[in-house]
Design a protein around this nucleic acid. Structure first.
Lengths: 143, 143
DNA sequence: ATAGCTGCAAATGCTTTGCAAGGCC
DNA sequence: GGCCTTGCAAAGCATTTGCAGCTAT
């Protein structure tokens, strides 16, 4: 039996292992756990807090700071993308290709395909600068 | 001479006074100062910190907490609009009609007219919810 | 008079950091 | 072995809040 299994299930960490290797990140125990949750399992949109409770639910303890460090490392490596939704917390999206988001009344995120948005003529950009990203957020409220 | 003037200049606070009255906000001394800076003078996009240093520059002391309280009160009254740009700080925009933003490499905001953006078919909204706002942010970087 | 503000300082809440111990190559 | 990570706790920041004293109305 593999030492990393949780109650009853023995998650297959090989995929997560390859992902991390390929991204140039050391496959440490906490990172394997997190990568497994992010890429082989659950939701696409997570906050540090959500990820922390998901890990906890699998029976493993990962320090708060480690979750932030790992998430930032994943983002730097391009495995996840930081998404700005509000000032309350930082969201990470495992879907890294350009697209947009809808925030429902419960605070959950939903993807909006990139091609739903089209841009006309933008005001002139400052000299020597180019577009780094275009992100749209549609906020919903109860009717 | 009006008691609210600063070194050399005597700002005309009557416009600010009317604005506040009309919005149902008591025209107190700090609020008059801030409203004057926001609506009769300077930039359209401010953070609490920027506004604080602008006030300080006019020779008046306004408590940090009061700046936040006032800004939030202005936002509640519809005089300014909160804009989410990044997780670092909260921005307020004196331009309250729907429009979008461009963030240049120096972190400054520029307006993008609402009609530059057009939306195709959004994914279905959750039942009982409607669109509250649509905001787009274009981030720039050095070329 | 009195409900609403201000100032000040303490409290929050998310995120980062410092450092010693441990793990990966 | 050496460098990167983890854990833990402390530090940081932007923002909020509690409370006593002031101020518009």
């Amino acid at each position: 039996m593999h030492p990393l299994q949780s109650a009853g299930r023995a998650p297959d960490l090989t995929a997560a292992h390859h992902l991390l290797r390929h991204a140039g990140l050391r496959p440490t125990r906490p990172r394997l756990r997190l990568a497994w949750l992010l890429f082989c399992q659950g939701p696409r949109h997570v906050s540090a807090e959500m990820l922390a409770s998901e890990v906890a639910a699998t029976g493993f303890a990962v320090a708060q700071g480690t979750i932030y460090n790992a998430l930032n490392a994943f983002a730097r490596a391009g495995l996840v993308r930081e998404v700005v939704i509000d000032g309350e917390r930082t969201w990470f999206d495992t879907h890294v290709a350009p697209h947009h988001h809808m925030v429902d009344a419960a605070g959950h995120l939903h993807d909006i395909p990139a091609d739903v948005v089209s841009l006309g003529n933008l005001p002139p950009l400052p000299a020597g600068q180019e577009i780094a990203s275009v992100e749209l957020v549609v906020r919903l409220r109860p009717k």
